[in-house]
Design a binder for these strands. Structure first.
Lengths: 336, 336
DNA sequence: AACGTTGAGGTAAGCGCTTTCCTGATACCG
DNA sequence: CGGTATCAGGAAAGCGCTTACCTCAACGTT
């Protein structure tokens, strides 16, 4: 037994068969085998606590089974939700999911793509906003293409791609819904707490908001923050100080909206606030947050389906859209 | 170029060297090599977009580099926080982290342990409460031991183990702090919203609460829920209906405390509420939640350090404790 | 001039598994 | 009965790497 790991050869020897037979029995191959040998081998497996070496299996079979997922940060509820959807579908297909946190660092993204590539994953799902700066995007695109030419599949979530399958949340439309809601309530002075200017998510949501503003002949006061609660609080405080006349705030995600609520409370002000993403926290803050819901779990599920289901060769990339919906709660009211 | 993946042999051929030389150059081995060959090989690598096959490397080197993590659910903020700590340390050591969601299903736990074992991970970190029922625990323990005898390292978070290194949050002490706080405020009729009765976390926190109650000569009214927000809300509603005289509630995690707050609001009642874990949401609900803070990120960091740092052979398992701290906010006040 | 040294690179033996053939033995056919 | 399917099982060739060991040439040494 020794300290080393038991190998297939050990099992075979102990059962008095060849490794070929042992392998067939263990993997339930279709080759017929005597019942007696089967039990002998299975007994040996149990006694030696044999666990096949996955790396050797991969090498010998040269088939890919795992799926890699690139997200900014799983502990961010936004990505946690998406990841949940990804996992559900992957598990249903018997696939192992490898999650990689990129922490929004393009360098880390590239590193992980190579790592997943090296691990022969069947597919890579890239979740999360892309960057407007094309430097990082180009490099990323190169690596993904390299991966793809080796037979890997790619699906992206929430970032445009002209070459890979993608599922896109209706960010622009969602921004429009948020804006329209506020303007219909009669607000004329609306502040926007946006995300990092370099992200396409920020750009898209902002574009929707601007379209709504234009439709109502209004302009927006925009400040940029970092999509975190504290960043949102600070940004809201700044906005409140600089622009005393505002009557409503639109935050480009719920974390920042929650921060904004705190800032308002701190300043003793009461402005309408609309958030984005409808995360669980939205209904538990006071006032309960009006928010634009994105079906994040579904986003993840769709993406994994695309990743796992190879398209007919030569067909164009498949693009799926998932809609946005305004959830009205207590944080928005008619302008005075 | 073909559709297949470029292998080391391809690179070597293209550069006109042997695979040995190519391998040495690519891995920056200590063996000296002419500058000219080096550049030729590196050029070939770039041209062929060569990415080494990680499985073949693992097999040939037979060294373990990844670390597996078992958590109930990463998208639960509690585990997200722990995972963050685990990742930070692992990444600092250049290790890949494979996260597995067990969704509190013992069967899935076992399955994943085998899978991680098969993937030759260097260590497995098991995070999350154990089960009081010893059936599942025994089986789990068996598999972990099997893994350990093959040279793998194990660290557990928040569940006792007599054989592996462990880092334990001060659940009992935290429960005591919560109870003491309430009793010192003069509350005499305290309801407890506990987690699943089968979990050790529930048992430990409850034990602390009971110790505080005993010290003040009080008894507790306990109901069990499932650690989710909605479960907490339902449990609180039940408690409120059954026991109209209660003046304070202790929830065994913040999610359920938030649910309790919602139930109170719905019933138009105002009871003191103390939560557990001090998750980010605690300070954003109204009233801001008094909670017992557990340093979750640190918990993760410690555990990963234990997992990555092999102890002197033959030494007893190392146990680390991390403390609990009461964070007072606005949801608790003196009894009328 | 015969003999070690050293340096730079190649040869080939695995790592643990899968799978394609191949071998005997048994059953079935005319 | 010889001959051919049929069947259970084994031998061995890889999968793509790493690395211990070997070779060969260019040095330096007495």
């Amino acid at each position: 037994m020794g300290v080393g790991v038991a190998t297939l050869a050990d099992v075979a020897r102990r059962a008095g068969v060849s490794t070929a037979t042992a392998s067939r029995i263990i993997n339930g191959s279709s080759k017929p085998v005597t019942e007696e040998l089967r039990t002998r081998v299975l007994a040996a497996v149990a006694e030696l606590r044999y666990v096949p070496n996955a790396h050797a299996q991969m090498l010998a079979r040269s088939n890919r089974n795992a799926v890699g997922v690139l997200v900014h940060d799983v502990s961010d509820p936004y990505f946690a939700e998406i990841t949940r959807g990804l996992q559900r579908v992957a598990t249903a297909h018997g696939r192992l999911v490898i999650i990689c946190n990129t922490f929004r660092e393009p360098a880390r993204e590239l590193e992980y793509i190579d790592l997943l590539h090296a691990h022969q994953v069947a597919a890579i799902v890239v979740a999360g906003s892309g960057y407007l700066s094309s430097d990082a995007e180009t490099e990323l695109h190169d690596r993904l293409t390299a991966f793809e030419t080796t037979g890997g599949r790619i699906a992206v979530i929430g970032r445009h791609s002209h070459t890979s399958d993608a599922v896109l949340p209706a960010n622009e439309e969602g921004g429009f819904l948020a804006g329209q809601h506020l303007f219909e309530l009669g607000h004329t002075a609306v502040g926007v707490i946006a995300g990092p200017a370099a992200l396409t998510t920020t750009a898209d949501r902002l574009a929707g908001l601007r379209r709504a503003a234009a439709a109502h002949d209004r302009t927006l006061r925009v400040v940029h923050a970092d999509f975190t609660r504290d960043g949102g609080e600070a940004a809201a405080a700044r906005l409140l100080a600089d622009e005393p006349g505002l009557t409503a705030l639109a935050a480009l995600n719920d974390s920042m909206a929650v921060g904004a609520l705190a800032a308002l409370r701190g300043a003793g002000r009461a402005l309408s606030v609309v958030g984005f993403d409808d995360m669980p926290v939205a209904r538990d803050v006071t006032p309960a947050l009006t928010s634009v819901r994105l079906p994040l779990t579904e986003l993840g599920e769709r993406a994994m389906e695309l990743a796992l289901d190879p398209p007919p060769p030569g067909s164009p990339p498949r693009i799926e859209h998932v809609g946005a919906e305004l959830i009205r709660r207590d944080s928005t009211w008619a302008a005075p």
